[in-house]
């Protein structure tokens, strides 16, 4: 590439990056502004006051919501890792009659939009009396066809000789699963972990349905509350809330970006 093309490319890269990141940048700026500044349409705050941040924690039990979100996301992450890796292990390392059929059944659940099943699920949770509980928020998401598929694709790349060598060494299936398969597949487990944490943290509809009070409510619903509870919205405070909510996931994404990109494409395509 010659210098001119390179310069052009950099220009394009910067321009797109700015355009794409603008909403977040803008929200970040607003979160430090006073109402007056917002009204005047400033882009840079006069000073980086933390006032809005203090207010948002004051107005909402945001810390509690954050904790709830963290508990829910972590539980779903761990649950999914366990349930999906077990299923994927069976699909790859155990030969049994009907394996293809059950695998097809698993994959077919990807075609059922979750929203099409939410009414009976809602009723189920109602009957189980799981409203406003962590289990109501997490249990339905422990099994995931996508996660099973992703891990299966990765397990398939483990040479079968590793399995055979373990058999000769005298490992039973559980030992082989825990001592060899899981450690060897660390990267794809991290991928799935990051992915499931992110998507659970960002969930909106289900927490909206099954939380009716603050006890287990997640931050996403908190944001909606923040935006609707006041008639004249104090945008500075709302944006402070937004920034607080997206920071954990953005950090996780920045750390796991490479990992996620590799893992997801591998799982999706091979």
């Amino acid at each position: 590439m010659n210098i001119r093309n390179k310069l052009l490319l950099y220009l394009l890269l910067f321009f797109s990056a700015f355009l794409l990141f603008f909403p977040i940048l803008y929200a970040f700026m607003i979160s430090f502004m006073s109402s007056d500044e917002i009204l005047h349409g400033k882009f840079f705050p006069a000073a980086f006051h933390l006032e809005n941040y203090l207010k948002v924690f004051d107005r909402l039990p945001l810390l509690k919501y954050l904790l709830n979100s963290f508990i829910v996301s972590t539980s779903v992450m761990i649950g999914q890792l366990i349930v999906c890796s077990m299923a994927a292990y069976a699909f790859v390392f155990i030969q049994f009659k009907g394996r293809n059929f059950i695998f097809f059944l698993f994959i077919s659940t990807m075609m059922i939009p979750w929203e099409a099943t939410m009414i009976p699920n809602f009723i189920t949770i109602l009957k189980l009396d799981w409203f406003n509980t962590y289990q109501g928020l997490t249990f339905p998401f422990f099994a995931a066809a996508f996660g099973t598929f992703l891990l299966r694709q990765n397990f398939l790349t483990i040479p079968k000789e590793l399995h055979e060598a373990s058999q000769i060494a005298g490992l039973n299936t559980v030992q082989f699963f825990i001592k060899v398969v899981l450690p060897v597949s660390k990267t794809s487990l991290v991928t799935l972990g990051v992915y499931s944490f992110l998507s659970t943290w960002n969930q909106y509809l289900w927490p909206l349905l099954v939380t009716t009070n603050d006890s287990v409510r997640t931050v996403q619903i908190g944001l909606k509350q923040l935006q609707t509870q006041e008639t004249a919205t104090d945008w500075g405070v709302v944006m402070a809330g937004v920034i607080v909510v997206i920071i954990p996931t953005l950090l996780l994404l920045f750390l796991g970006q490479k990992q996620l990109q590799k893992g997801l494409t591998q799982g999706a395509l091979k």
Binding site: P159, E161, L162, E164, A165, V180, P183, V184, K186
Partner: peptide, 9 residues
């Protein structure tokens, strides 16, 4: 084994 089957981890 031909591919040695060493545990990579």
């Amino acid at each position: 084994f031909q591919n040695y089957a060493l545990y990579p981890h």
